[in-house]
């Protein structure tokens, strides 16, 4: 995950987040996919009640808004979409 200035590595194994690290190192091999959006967009997404068009990653990625870019290996992205959606929604509870 990341914004346009900073990347964050979220390592998930067996359904649990193993670590969240700022930036990537040569040891961080096997990154599958990544989501990038401006920090202003993530801030809106993380609000308890986000404004319209920031209520979902697909809303932010919508061609009309172009706030989010999803890149990488799309197969594990789709395979884990439910868990990913749940994980991202937790930002609204902290």
């Amino acid at each position: 995950m990341g914004n346009y200035d900073t990347e964050y590595l979220v390592d998930v194994r067996g359904g649990k987040i193993q670590k969240i690290a700022q930036g990537l190192t040569p040891n961080d091999m096997g990154v599958e996919f990544w989501l990038k959006a401006p920090s202003s967009a993530w801030s809106k997404f993380a609000q308890e009640i986000p404004p319209p068009m920031f209520n979902d990653i697909w809303a932010m990625a919508h061609p009309l808004h172009k706030q989010l870019i999803i890149e990488g290996n799309s197969l594990p992205f789709w395979q884990n979409l439910r868990a990913l959606t749940r994980m991202l929604s937790l930002m609204r509870q902290v």
Partner: peptide, 13 residues
């Protein structure tokens, strides 16, 4: 799971 989750965010939070 993917069908249901891909539309989940279409709902108002």
């Amino acid at each position: 799971e993917v069908v249901a989750t891909s539309v989940f965010g279409l709902m108002a939070t």
